[in-house]
Design a protein around this nucleic acid. Sequence first.
RNA 1: GCCAGAGUAGCUCAGCUGGUUAGAGCGCCGCACUCAUAACGCGGAGGUCGGCGGUUCAAGUCCGCCCUUUGGUACCA
Length: 508
Amino acid sequence: MKKAFYLTTAIDYANGSPHLGHAYEKILADVIIRTKKLNGMPTHFVTGLDEHGQKVQQGADKEGILPKERCDRIAQEFKNLLVTLNISNDDYIRTTEPRHKNVVSSLLQDLFNRGEIYQAEYKGFYSTRAEQFLQEKDKVNGKWPEIYGDVTEITESNYFFKLSKYQDWLIKFLEESDDFIVPSFRKNQVIEFLREPLNDLCISRPKERLAWGIPLPFDKNYVTYVWFDALVNYVTAAGYGNEEFKDLWPADLHVIGKDILAPPHAVYWPIMLKASNLPLPKQILAHGWWMSSGEKMSKSTGEVVDPLSLVEQRGVDAFRYFVMREMTVGQDADFSLERFESRYKTDLGNDLGNLVSRLFHMTATYEKGVVPKVELNEEFEQKIKTNFEAAKEKALEHFNAFQFNQGLEQIFIFIRSINKYADERTPWKLAKSDLSEDRQKLKTCLGVMVESLRLAIQMIAPVMPGVHEKVNQLFGLPACENWKTALEWDFRLEGKTLGEKIILFPRD
RNA sequence: GCCAGAGUAGCUCAGCUGGUUAGAGCGCCGCACUCAUAACGCGGAGGUCGGCGGUUCAAGUCCGCCCUUUGGUACCA
């Protein structure tokens, strides 16, 4: 069996409700996986939840409930979001699941047995109030701020993973790879980061300080901390230890935010895998952040409009279209309600929605809803077919390079050209004529428009799966499964009776 | 401080390895049309491509310096 294209998102941290950032990453990953499917690849798409750690425990303590109860509730919120956003994930992994704990234990034990993990003293400044070690950078004016309360220097025994011995190997690997990290400029940031000598990674916390975690298999007085828990989800979900593992691993693509590229995904993770004798993922895609007039968006800034509320107001497809159209993958973008409304009204309503509306209306009134046979192939027809071929080539190329904003632009250029074609042929005038020549032109025009719209709708499927299915239903087509066969200019709908006209993107 | 991204029409952005009068969408102003969600189509105004200097026959496009802005600098998507 052919290896599936295995794609993951970062797993969300179970400490707070989902916001635009979470939604965007899922949509981006979903659009990518849908394009892979349409290109004929078998796929496997996993997302999930990171549930251990201090913040989760503290959050639960504050509410007076068990960490697991809190995680269950938050997991449900995140899962609901996936449904709302029409995300087509095949699996949802939670780090509290037995399958995950087993894999973490087994990897840790193996590394410990082979001397990749060792015990040592960790000396640092500890804040009892914040329940954490502080760094020099936490100081303000050379002093620890009030919020940390009493800060004392303590020594604690912990376990460490030998990162530093792999530093040279990693630098060499990164320098030789050309598309391991996308966008490429981020690779330089990672290599820059690696210019400083790496410290070994502290991977444990004593149980008395943190109980909510996966115990170290070789020392039950400790739990493992953060990265050996969170990152390992990618191999857990690939079925590490089972038969299916070889069909999925290595991952083809990790979709993550730019904030967790270096060091976690570009430094810790490759080294963890290398030390475990596992192959590295093929590619890491680091996306940017949504900003609000230059400010990073988060729940703490108290937005006037919650972006996610637009999903309910304008529909999930409009929302997916907006974030894909507006964001240059890898860079930051601004989220503004005005931009959203403008995209909704003009691109979706006026260009696409209105085209659907006018075309189905005309076909119904002029041809009783039956797609007529195309009898002419004059300049206008040749031109729009050329437009389609160009849009197809460019759009698919952009999609493959994760440049969805540009791919969508190409598709909408084509959609606008369908409207233009209607203006050139003026079917509403032809319909008033009895001349056989005009009848022929009318049939041709409608047939060509139907074919053009059909093709545009197939290309838009990964971004707007809902609209795609709806319109395909009116065409009497099932959801598109493979672009190769679907994106052929062949008038396959000739003679079919179309469904009734619908308003795809209503104005209020 | 160091590293990186961004700085192109009012707004959001395209402009690959340097090469004709710098492009698109939105917004604005006109024209036209009436099948359609008062939608579509056409035309127009609007830019010394952040600044200075350099390389070149030729530079938003390469080099240097500077300015503005965002992010990273060991655990918030």
